[in-house]
């Protein structure tokens, strides 16, 4: 079915040819872009929409770190709740491998899905911070920028910015709305910088990189607010720049960290003798343990890098960023919309 609110350019279901492309590995999701693995050609763009709030509010997903089985849990739960349409969409999301990304702090596409979603997302970041708070205090209590109370203040500020962003959509006066969105963009830049500083510090002191995860999530969230605010003002270029800035920042922080680094760090703690089956087992265990963490880092980088990727395609069809955001915000049926890339057809 085609969404009609902005001229029928969005799809609510993944077309069969794209679904089979994902199945056979021809197509892969990179951030919010569905691309052909061998040619690099873009098949479509994903964009989160209003009903994703229902998924994020699910108590089964209260964990800060969503696991690989998340899609199946959500599917089953939504089925029990009788939300068949959303359940089908979740099936598509799971198939596309995008469910974790959709639920993460970085989000999928531009974060537009209303304060309920943004609050859920910031709540997840808060949970993530809380889960490592004790360790943060242990490693460096004297460094102000990673003090738990200051982090909480900044997370509260991010939440307020998210509320302001959402609130402005209800203004009758668009000039006032735009002023508020500009204020949000400015405030979000400040928060992005503060969490960048924390992430940088924690990456230096924690060889397992776990402590910096929550800071990176907060950074990604702040950046998403900036991009959304500029897009809501129809400031495409500023939105692109903000997204590019976020992408460069997050890649500078975590782009060079790979599975090999986490494995090496784990192996340093292993007592098994070299050249033994035990050591090989420890290697494999370290690899398996590091996999999900590295996947989250790569997905975060990809999400930020591709956030404004569909803008060119949308503008070529005469759709402004604001109209696009509004359509996704007010969507009621599916949590993710698909914008097929017609030039690839």
């Amino acid at each position: 079915m085609i969404a009609t609110s902005i001229g029928g350019v969005f799809l609510r279901e993944v077309p069969k040819h794209l679904a089979s492309g994902v199945d056979d590995g021809t197509l892969q999701l990179f951030g919010s872009v569905l691309r052909n693995v061998s040619t690099g050609q873009i098949a479509g763009f994903l964009q989160e929409a209003g009903p994703i709030a229902k998924i994020m509010a699910n108590p089964l997903l209260g964990l800060a770190q969503v696991g690989l089985e998340t899609g199946h849990i959500v599917q089953g739960e939504l089925l029990r709740q009788g939300l068949g349409r959303i359940e089908n969409s979740v099936a598509s999301l799971t198939q596309l491998g995008s469910i974790n990304l959709a639920l993460s702090a970085a989000g999928i596409g531009v974060s537009i899905a209303g304060f309920a979603v943004l609050a859920q997302r910031i709540g997840r970041v808060q949970q993530s911070v809380d889960s490592v708070a004790e360790k943060i205090d242990l490693i460096d209590t004297k460094v102000d920028q990673i003090r738990q109370d200051l982090i909480n203040v900044d997370l509260a500020e991010l939440k307020a910015l998210a509320r302001s962003l959402d609130e402005a959509w209800s203004f009758d006066n668009m000039e006032r709305a735009e002023r508020q969105w500009h204020d949000v963009a400015k405030g979000a830049l400040s928060q992005q910088s503060r969490f960048e500083m924390r992430a940088e510090h924690l990456l230096r002191v924690d060889p397992n990189f776990i402590l910096a995860e929550a800071m990176s999530d907060a950074l990604a969230f702040a950046n998403s607010l900036r991009v959304t605010a500029f897009a809501a003002c129809n400031e495409s270029r500023a939105a692109h720049e903000a997204a590019a800035d976020g992408a460069r920042t997050i890649e500078r922080l975590t782009g060079g960290i790979g599975l090999a680094d986490l494995v090496r760090s784990s192996l340093a703690q292993v007592s098994a003798e070299l050249g033994t089956p035990d050591w090989e087992s420890a290697l494999m265990a370290a690899k398996n343990e590091a996999g999900p963490q590295v996947l989250r880092m790569r997905q975060r980088e990809a999400a930020i890098a591709t956030r404004t990727a569909p803008f060119v395609s949308l503008e070529a069809r005469g759709i402004s960023p604001r109209d696009w955001l509004n359509a996704a915000r007010t969507e009621t049926e599916v949590p993710i919309l698909l914008l097929p890339n017609d030039s690839a057809a």
């Binding site: 990179f30 691309r35 790979g258 494995v263 290697l283 790569r298 890098a305 990727a309």
Partner: peptide, 21 residues
């Protein structure tokens, strides 16, 4: 931001991980 370049950089990173392990 050229996200296609990010795709390649991630692929190189994955290559590094695979080789080192």
């Amino acid at each position: 931001m050229n996200w296609q370049a990010v795709v390649r950089r991630q692929a190189v990173g994955a290559w590094r991980d695979e080789q080192i392990v």
